[in-house]
């Protein structure tokens, strides 16, 4: 019986100890981690979309709820005036999720392009969605009001990346999703943006 107790004891103490260590490491790194996530996942795409902004969209950001989901919105301002809004949506790709950062021009109510944030597509084929600017540029200036985006084989207007129909389709789904979200949340967004306009 004694060895039983000692076994339980050692295990308990050890795990508690490790819990403590981990908690403290976590505490000291949490801020850094959050910043890193923003910096590496979102920032490049946002910069590409909200070109010419004078503010730092990484700082001017807010969150809104869409159903269960919480979405971060990044605000782009030119000389204090809000010009664009960027946020991330997801579509299903060839190998897992594709994240698409979508920008909306507040004035024209058109998309101002997009940028792929996370993807694990086949290098050199599906991954062109991220690296080939021509592909995402197709979304530029498409009106937000217009419903779904589709690739050409599906009867839509987007040229698929050669050999990567699935990836292209995934990006289209993400873009469609973005438009839908924007339309759903338009009122709340406008409300929020007022705060930044000053």
């Amino acid at each position: 019986m004694r060895d039983l107790i000692s076994m339980v004891l050692v295990l308990t103490v050890l795990s508690a100890f490790s819990g403590g260590i981990l908690a403290s490491v976590k505490q000291s790194t949490s801020e850094k981690i959050e910043f890193q996530q923003l910096k590496f996942e979102k920032a490049p795409a946002i910069k590409m979309i909200l070109t010419g902004c004078t503010n730092d969209p990484m700082i001017d950001r807010f969150k809104l709820k869409d159903g269960d989901q919480e979405i971060s919105f990044f605000v782009g301002k030119v000389d204090g005036k809000v010009t664009g809004l960027a946020f991330e949506t997801f579509g299903k790709g060839f190998e897992g999720k594709i994240g698409l950062m979508v920008g909306v021009n507040i004035d024209t109510m058109c998309l101002i392009g997009g940028g792929v944030t996370t993807q694990s597509e086949t290098p050199g084929v599906g991954s062109k969605a991220k690296t080939d600017p021509k592909f995402v540029a197709q979304f530029e200036n498409l009106p937000v009001a217009k419903g779904a985006f589709k690739v050409k084989p599906d009867g839509g207007g987007i040229d698929a990346l050669s050999g990567a129909t699935i990836t292209s389709r995934g990006v289209c789904i993400a873009a469609t999703d973005a438009v839908n979200i924007y339309n759903r949340l338009e009122d709340q967004l406008k409300e929020k943006l007022k705060a930044y306009s000053k």
Partner: peptide, 8 residues
């Protein structure tokens, strides 16, 4: 955690 913080 460290990798997340420094080599994201």
């Amino acid at each position: 955690l460290l990798m997340q913080a420094f080599t994201y």
